[in-house]
Amino acid sequence: MGIVTPGFVGKRRDADPRLPPGQYETKDFPVLSVGPTPNIHAGEWQFSITTEHGETRRWSWEEFRALPVEDVHTDIHCVTRWSKFGTLWRGVSLDTLFEGLQTDAGYVMEHAYGGYTTNVPLAELRGGKAWLVFEYDGEPLDPEHGGPVRLLVPHLYFWKSAKWVTGLTLHTTEELGFWEVNGYHAHGDPWKEQRYYYDS
């Protein structure tokens, strides 16, 4: 605990056990992006996964939408300290996309439109923990929230849920993405408060 701030009482919004340390609850949906919002038509959208051996799987929008979908009801946590409870998404589990893929890679680079990247251990994307989502709250995903398709990795800080995602590349060594090179943490667990690169 830090020094006491005289006269500060606070609103005690963090009594909620759903709230990780240093976060506060918001009811609206702030936008965190580092540049203009790209306008990507679903028809031109493509997604690919490339293994460390150079094997690539590709999905067009139609192929992607033919995959089984799941509804995901989850809390999300932004590194800028807001958390939003009970968000509702619809998308395809990454387990479905990884099925049968031969890889010994431990690390993933997420690639997004415009060249933005973020890195994440492969284990964080498997086992029912990550999705490619195309609907939020029953509506097509807004471009400013990453539409037509973004990643959803809700157990990590939300910058790991790349907006406008175009593909994943698998790697045997950990490389840092755009966000991590610019000061954010390589792993990003909100419950361990891994915000910035020097947090343990």
């Binding site: 918001t26 609206d28 702030p30 540049g35 203009p36 919002t37």
Partner: peptide
């Protein structure tokens, strides 16, 4: 940002900081 990009500015030269909900 949309206005700049529509006017021919390269999106990768535009840095943004947003606050508040959408």
């Amino acid at each position: 940002a949309d206005a700049l990009v529509a006017g021919g500015t390269d999106p990768l030269t535009v840095r943004t900081e947003r606050f508040g909900g959408a």
